[in-house]
């Protein structure tokens, strides 16, 4: 390796470190400030868990957090089941219109949430579904479904259809084949898809924002309202908790997907 090459490589590595700093520093500072006793973020820091204690007393934020968790869990279950079923159909059968159906998975991902969210508001209001937690759930499942289908499909690509054929020729019923052979094989994909669904729902702000009502909100909606009123250190604390949860979840998904991915 020439001297210039080595110099340029070092420069490149240094640059990536800078970019990582840009990505993580604000989050790190927010976390740090959530432990600062001063409500005006004064330095030097005085360590304290005051804001976390205040947070646990804040019924609105705690209630919204529980709503978020509940909706994310139900979204995960529904989207995983419906999404896996749809993936199996795409894997097993060739039929007219398959391409069209697969293309229809893109709009929920590609159209800005502002448009999807306002459209849901207009429609749900018009047909009497209304707003509230049920409407938020309805929206979250729809946003999560394409991710589950795509992730499970990716796992199914590595599955040998001959396995299903062999089981069928040995007299296994369709349900037995699915339950004993196919599902165990694609389980890592289903779990990864489910974790994506959880993340999509738990971190979702825009769509929830348009479908929430004063009593029925999720955590990000409540945080947005609080920020616009003028932010308090409690918001720091709750934001830190959220970011730690979602990053831990994604790290877990990444490990799972990788180690589960090969079999």
């Amino acid at each position: 390796m020439s001297k210039t090459t080595r110099f340029l490589s070092a420069l490149g590595r240094g640059y990536v470190v800078l970019l990582l700093a840009f990505l993580y520093l604000p989050i790190f500072i927010m976390g740090l400030m959530s432990f600062n006793a001063s409500p005006f973020y004064q330095l030097p820091m005085k360590w304290s868990t005051t804001w976390y204690e205040a947070l646990s007393q804040d019924d609105r934020l705690v209630g919204a957090a529980l709503n978020s968790l509940q909706i994310a869990i139900i979204t995960t279950v529904i989207a995983s089941i419906l999404g896996t079923a749809a993936s199996l159909a795409f894997f097993r059968y060739n039929f007219k219109g398959k391409k069209v159906l697969q293309t229809l998975l893109l709009p929920p991902i590609a159209i800005p949430w502002l448009i999807t969210g306002t459209a849901m508001l207009v429609f749900f209001y018009g047909v009497g579904i209304g707003r509230g937690l049920h409407a938020i759930l309805l929206g979250h499942v729809a946003l999560a479904l394409p991710y589950v289908i795509i992730v499970v499909n990716a796992r199914l690509q590595t599955f040998a259809p001959e396995l299903e054929e062999a089981a069928r020729s040995l007299g296994a019923s369709q349900w037995q084949i699915t339950r004993r052979i196919t599902l165990p094989y694609i389980a890592p994909g289903v779990i990864a898809g489910g974790l994506f669904a959880f993340a999509v729902s738990f971190d979702q702000f825009v769509v929830s924002y348009f479908l929430a009502t004063p009593g029925q909100t999720t955590l990000p909606v409540e945080i947005y309202a609080a920020i616009r009123k003028g932010f308090t250190p409690e918001i720091n604390a709750v934001s830190t908790i959220i970011i730690v949860i979602s990053m831990a979840l994604m790290l877990f998904t990444a490990r799972f997907y990788k180690f589960g991915g090969n079999g």
Partner: peptide, 29 residues
């Protein structure tokens, strides 16, 4: 059994959900 008929029960729940929560709302808008 025709493949489309066999695929329908697996696809229907997911796509009904997408129709109600994504495609009808976009049309309604």
């Amino acid at each position: 059994r025709s493949p489309a008929k066999a695929a329908a029960p697996l696809l229907l729940p997911a796509y009904l959900w997408l129709i109600v929560a994504i495609f009808l709302p976009l049309s309604a808008m």
